[in-house]
Design a binder for these strands. Structure first.
Lengths: 198, 198
DNA sequence: CACGTTGGCTAATTGTGATAGCTTCTGGCT
DNA sequence: AGCCAGAAGCTATCACAATTAGCCAACGTG
């Protein structure tokens, strides 16, 4: 009997893909095992439990999302960077709804929790975006949380089909980005001319 | 054997309370039955399924949240109304995390879905808040969605323990409210548009 | 007080997560 | 080449949660 040659990352990756295709709620150990051509208990050789699987998928999603956002803001700053970051995140969530859904409702166990680490990494590009605005040092945490709340909120609502007139959702998103931009500019009192790394 | 004298609303109310106390994930039919002093199958005389229960709890939460926000903005307008509404919603989510968690991940089946109706009702106070700002008629939908995204995002992140330094979360929230306020004011053009781009 | 309706129960089914313990493949070492 | 330890599968089995079927007792109404 030949071996399937699995390995934790393969299981997590397949789980994330399956969640994207069939919905996070349908991500059952049995379904995942079937997709991998293996019996259910075999999965437990690679992940400790379903919750462990969820957390690993969440960490993967946060890392991927952060990388996508990071790539999107390359060479941009100020409002351009903000818009690029926002759209990159939204695109990621729309394209990978299942794995992103794994990230909600997770309480990080501590600062060394892989989920927390991945979340921090996913947040880094947004810190970079903020550097294009004149936000006081002591307000950086608040501004970062604001960005997170805004775009996470919009993305999850959209992914859950929470907006009724789907035709205008794109416009709403652009409007939201503008709202945040205006709020950030006004926060500094001075409009810093976008200059990356300045 | 005396009857328990249950009734759908009692089941939904108890379910919401149980979810608040033990977490939405722990809201099992068995646990709810035990709390009501009844056997599990008896619940099915009052709710059609667990999903039905979830939807009813969600509708209850949205209605209650909307009422709380509506009460909070009485006699206020402009920035005061915005701040009052935001804090009322946040307080509700913090106080009733379980029932609010029931509202995420629900796709309304149609415009007559009780969940959709309750959501619309819960949104009404925010429309009222927006009337205190000079937002163009065609932008009202966008502005409403923005408010929803912002405060829903913050509330869910906070409820999930997603913010690391809990001591400053209150400040972050106030800062977020200010950010939105500034963005809304600048949207109308009535107030000081900061020297963005000179 | 008869009686239909309703609300509760027990019993049983199904699906899912998880563990135990056996077996077999694989890769390194002699 | 052949041996052996450990990893990676498997079958069998539990536990537990949701749900349904079908029975029976309590309640309200005539």
């Amino acid at each position: 009997m030949p071996r399937a040659g699995l390995h934790p990352d393969a299981v997590v990756g397949a789980g994330a893909a399956l969640a994207d295709e069939t919905g996070f709620a349908a991500l059952t150990m049995g379904a995942l095992a079937e997709r991998l051509g293996v019996r259910t208990p075999s999965l437990y050789k690679h992940v400790a439990s379903q919750e462990d699987l969820h957390r690993r998928i969440a960490a993967l999603a946060l890392t991927e999302a952060g990388d996508a956002v990071g790539a999107a803001i390359q060479g941009r700053s100020g409002r351009d960077a903000l818009a690029a970051a926002a759209h990159a995140l939204r695109d990621f969530v729309v394209t990978h709804p299942g794995r992103y859904a794994a990230t909600v409702g997770l309480t990080p166990t501590g600062p060394d929790d892989p989920v927390a680490v991945a979340a921090a990494r996913g947040l880094a590009p947004f810190e970079a975006v903020l550097r294009g605005y004149d936000v006081a040092a002591e307000d950086r945490v608040h501004a970062l949380r604001a960005l997170r709340s805004v775009f996470h909120g919009f993305a999850t609502l959209e992914a859950d089909g929470g907006f009724q007139f789907s035709t205008t959702v794109d416009d709403s998103f652009d409007w939201l980005v503008d709202l945040v931009h205006r709020g950030l500019v006004a926060a500094g009192g001075t409009a810093q001319v976008p200059q990356h790394g300045a």
